[in-house]
Amino acid sequence: MFEARLTKGELIKKVIEALKDLVTEANFDISATGIQLQAMDSSHVSLCALQMKAEGFDHFRCDRSMPLGINLSSMSKVLKCCNKDDIVTLKAEDDGDSINFMFESKDQDKISDFELKLMDIDSEHFGIPDTDYKATVTMSASEFTRICNDLSILGETVAISVGKDGVRFSVSGEMGTGNMTVRDNTSSDTKEADRVEIDMEEPVNLNFALRYLKSFAKAAPLTDRVSLCLSRDVPLLVKYEIPEFGSLSYYLAPKIDD
């Protein structure tokens, strides 16, 4: 038996919105410690890794570890019926072929339940080596979304370079070029959410497809902060930590000069 109840049910909805552009179907691996998901997009350019800790739920019971194969677009449709303040309960039997979603309004005056059929999905687990990233930038998640959306009007590829002057995002396309530089402001009085922290061992300059970064940025409603971790010739890690709940990480293969 698996049962998980979350008062802030909206979090589940936001997690699925942040995954469904990249992943159509995936296994939610449930165990006594929580829920994990790891999946690459269909072109194997990016990888999403979700962790939701058992302690992050108001009630969490998992008698047997198992994968729950779910079509994320169906799950997203079901979650559209979940209101902002609803309490969400997920349930699945050990040998069942479905997952049950229950949405309860805060005042307990409306209860909805939905059942989704589970799917058999080949498990994909990738060994992601521990990487000692040469540069880590932590900034406002909404500001990162803004940068990705704004620069994508000019081109498809962004060059991210971290140097002593800050982190520069550059795009060039047929229309022209654009640069946005964000500087470390930890020594000023900037409020917590707008802080930019740059931790650099050595300068890094890498190219990435903006299309994927824009999809990753759909995770911004989950949390205030995002970290970008870079090293030469290795995938970029874009990490959204969700306080007291877990994290959503995205890995993106760089574009390499031909």
Partner: peptide, 14 residues
């Protein structure tokens, strides 16, 4: 123009 790498070069399936 830079060419898109895929992740399989970096991460093996385990």
């Amino acid at each position: 123009t830079p060419v898109q790498n895929d992740l399989d070069e970096f991460y093996a399936m385990v």
